[in-house]
Amino acid sequence: MLKYTLRRLVIALPVLLGISVIAFFIVRLVPGDTVTALLGAHYSEAEAEALRQRLGLDQPLPVQYVIWLGNVLSGDFGQSAFTGEPVLEAILNRLPVTIQLVAISICFAVFVAVPLGVMAAVGRSGRTDFFATLFGLLGISIPGFWLGVLLILLFSLTLGWLPSGGFVSLWDDPIANFRHMILPGLSLGMAVAAVVMRMTRSTMLEVLNEEYIKMARAKGVPKRRTIIRHALRNALIPIITITGIQAGYLLGGSIVIEQIFSLPGIGLLALQAITNRDYALVQGTVLFIALGFMVINLLVDLIYAWLDPRIKY
């Protein structure tokens, strides 16, 4: 196991470097630059030049990259050219919002998807199964941003039950925080719920056909207990895996959802950074999201390897 972990980490290193290269160079390809975004429509060439120098943008690219990488490794992600806010601080400030959003989405997905998938598998081809299949299909086909719009239309604008956007910190006011997070969590979690449900259903179907389950049933173990104790337990590995993989995708999905619900998370920060051509901030957020994505995938692989004894390292 340790060897496997180490090997995975070693493979991850060049990928990390690749991510950093992309994160750095990609923004240099962008037309228009920070300096002009910063100075607005009106500036003199001298002003622009001075600012370029102050931001270190007058150096050759590879030099800028090496300097940047060195800084990043020592924890200095630079400053947002637009607001002067340190990039790391900006990211850490918004991280809790995104983490909470992703967590709520996953909880929702798991609590809905697993029971539904189990019921569908048990009552195969019945009404529940049909409903579950429909849910699975709609879930992966409805764009999260449309779902968000529909939920706002129904729950905020028509019924007036929930706010249509904005954020209140969990520590400031837990109830208000929850009210603000429900709709975004639902919108983001739906697709995950669908995927997890489909996975639960299909693995449960497989497991239920295994000999030992049939055996248990034949021996007179109650149905409910068989399903939960034996079948679900064995189906759990792929379910956990797919949930983990989805958690990574949620980081991407949060960009659109945070935009719709005006949630000040990493996704919105990345979007704003891209729109403002804020080099340091684009680099920081892109790097951070890719890193998070990679770490989650790595963890999923490790958990999978740890859970599944059949996998050889």
């Binding site: 037309p31 228009g32 002009t36 975004a37 607005g40 429509a41 891209i274 729109t275 403002n276 051509r277």
Partner: peptide, 12 residues
């Protein structure tokens, strides 16, 4: 339609 950075640069 372009983002502010590009747009204002062009205007400028």
């Amino acid at each position: 339609a372009e983002e502010s950075g590009v747009f204002f640069e062009a205007l400028g």
